[in-house]
Amino acid sequence: MIVGNRKPLEEILEMVKPYKKILLLGCNECITVCAAGGEREVGVLASELKLSRAKNGGEIEIKEHTLERQCDFEYIDQIKPFVDDYEAIVSMACGAGIQYTAERFPGKVVLPAINTTFLGVTLEQGVWSERCQGCGECILHLTGGICPVARCAKSLFNGPCGGSSNGKCEVNPDTPCAWQLIVDRLKELGQLENYEKIIEVKNWSTSRDGGPRTRVREDLRIPKDS
């Protein structure tokens, strides 16, 4: 899933300073699962904003609303009937959702309440961990199912570097060394000979480095009127 963090309240308060009526828009997908911008977090933020305004003698009207998704316009368009009752939208979706909401309402101020961080998994309740960077050319079959791009601090293809110590990364002692994990897994799979193969220079053009990416499935597109 896409994982994000709620921005600090202070930052959000600064953004909404000029507004008295805001639409606080949650998203029911990944950002709900990682407990950053779902219905509950929308409620919490609304409450925080109201408390803070009241404490400082100000007023704020907040409509809480959580969409099924903010990455599909059909859902975003559901706010059309009431969006104009509000001066600004504060979106609690991931960066994609925030932008798409802004795209659907070009005349409306759309503010981010989430710092989108990574594509990851739930390690345990309340703990999420990065697994993928969407580089566009997966090599997990070569690395025992563990991604050096996302999980090595240096994205080394032929690691580990000299900083691997007791299975941990030198950058953060709480982070496992990706290459230790890869070596362990290759051993378990009886494929340690794979380690001896040099992984060649990567083609980064399939990643963000090739520019913003678009995916098209021509067969699924709705035919144009003939």
Binding site: D219, R221, P223, D225
Partner: peptide, 12 residues
């Protein structure tokens, strides 16, 4: 547009 969709699917 059913037949137009079919054209695309056959191409796929």
């Amino acid at each position: 547009k059913g037949n137009l969709r079919a054209v695309k699917r056959i191409a796929y």
